[in-house]
Amino acid sequence: MQRFPCPFCGPRDEREFHFAGEAGKIRPTPSAAQSDTDWATYLYEAQNPRGPSREIWVHTPCQEYFIMTRDTVSMEVLGTEQLRKETL
């Protein structure tokens, strides 16, 4: 089994992680100004890169969502980032 690094729990078994989607998609503000094409782009179109890919993942035991950059050919993990903003 491969190990993925949770930014909060450290390296854990890959089966504890769930792929949630590509990073960087922004949901259009619901309004009449959004065209069908805008919604279709948001809902369906995918970057689907061959190589480095920036993705949102969740570590299911701790329920933290975070960004993981991964090579989709070699499966190598290139880095993780927090999505959580630091609270003061």
Binding site: F19, G51, E55, V73
Partner: peptide
């Protein structure tokens, strides 16, 4: 299918 997008 695998649960993770892949080209490998």
């Amino acid at each position: 299918l695998d649960r993770v997008p892949s080209y490998g």
